[in-house]
Design a binder for these strands. Sequence first.
DNA 1: CGACGGCTTGAGGCATTTCAAGCCTAGTGG
DNA 2: CCACTAGGCTTGAAATGCCTCAAGCCGTCG
Lengths: 252, 252
Amino acid sequence: MSPSDSCFIRHFSHFAPLSDRDKHLLKKLEVNPVSVNAGTTLWETGDPAGRFGVLSQGWAFSCRYMEDGTRQILDIHIPGDVIGLGEYAFHHRLNTVVTLTKSEICYFPHKHLQEVFDESSTLTSLFFTIAGHHQALLTERLINMARRNAQQKLAHFLYETLQRMQRIGACNANRIELPLSQQLIADLLGISTVHISRTFAVFREQGLVFRKRQWVEIPDVHALACVAEFDGKYLDGGLSLPSEAPRQSSTV
Amino acid sequence: MSPSDSCFIRHFSHFAPLSDRDKHLLKKLEVNPVSVNAGTTLWETGDPAGRFGVLSQGWAFSCRYMEDGTRQILDIHIPGDVIGLGEYAFHHRLNTVVTLTKSEICYFPHKHLQEVFDESSTLTSLFFTIAGHHQALLTERLINMARRNAQQKLAHFLYETLQRMQRIGACNANRIELPLSQQLIADLLGISTVHISRTFAVFREQGLVFRKRQWVEIPDVHALACVAEFDGKYLDGGLSLPSEAPRQSSTV
DNA sequence: CGACGGCTTGAGGCATTTCAAGCCTAGTGG
DNA sequence: CCACTAGGCTTGAAATGCCTCAAGCCGTCG
């Protein structure tokens, strides 16, 4: 994998090795990255949906606005994330996507996806893998919402984010940059901002998590995982190719 | 679509018309349906995952058992539902699937799916559509968990189930069979059984919902949708083929 | 008939929310 | 360099939705 590979190819290589032909196919289809400022709405609920995106730089989030003016944040996107692929089946966007920082995004029209389906079953499998991965994340979040209290929810979110950041090599072992306000975390976890603040306070007293501005420090990562009852299996899905040995699951 | 079409073909025809060649391809790959009794575990978390299934008859549910012995039910499956497709990306099952009634299921090995990817981009698109559909359902449930109170959760679940049953032609306008105990609904919605009972009691007093054994009667479906703040867009994703006119969305 | 699972009802308790006020801190303009 | 401001965060107090525990009821099945 050379540095000149696109963000997309880098992302895909994560799941399985790509042939040069597949790389070529992907590169041919890719439109050049677009730069956008923090706070940019990439698309909104109801917009026509004809393409998906890969976030090559920056942070973003997907959300849904409710009738009462509140919003539920559905996903926090970090570099390398595929965004809006699940809306392939729909004519209009279901969710709104907004950038949190200055970002770069590559767009891929759905009709190019059809070409991929026609030409490479390896890439098709990979897209399926990504979709399955996304579904596993969503499922885990559903459980998080339904079954855990505020401390567990927050611990789970922090630990999951740490893992995802490490996976893309964007943080060291126990410190992550997290450009999210408590308001945003509240909207993500379905908890009031007041209670997010209190929960962080508890973690601080326990020496579990220290949050200073955009940085979160986690002295004992394992302890945090225990609070969250975190089971990392759902993050580890790779592509099941005969040539590939099963991956180790990083269960905690 | 002839009555001799498999459960799978019937399910797929729902999203887009199939050519005879595609039908033939699907039929060729399909293993004969398997009959199982109520309460049968089709697979469990941790089992090797090498195939997915289509439920052709009966009810089932997917769930995840928690460390404390409780469980979160992730999905209720009705006839025509594709089960376990999201685990394509994983070597082992993430979720447990159990039948609720006497059921019939058709299994499809993942390697057959690869053949479909090789031979028909229409079917590939369809599988993608199904995956996207499933993701939309999950997202909606996430919102349901995070943002709504017990009455809204229950109303939303009932309304969604009514819609899904109507879609497969398995119920009339305001009465559905629902072979789920209150315990099960509680585990699905993340609410205690006691509170499920009380919430049904409130609905009964309001004349909104009457539950008698396995049957649920909803005199005013629209009123229920209002309680749930139900927006049906997420149920309506079809395949975006150039030849196909956009579907009407049944927003309430 | 007796037993069991599923449902209902009551009372008390707890996690989280809401409302409200005050505090830090970064950024701005004089 | 210092006031001023605004947004984000913290803290307290009261309210509430849901949970837990516990007892009783009802219908089904052996």
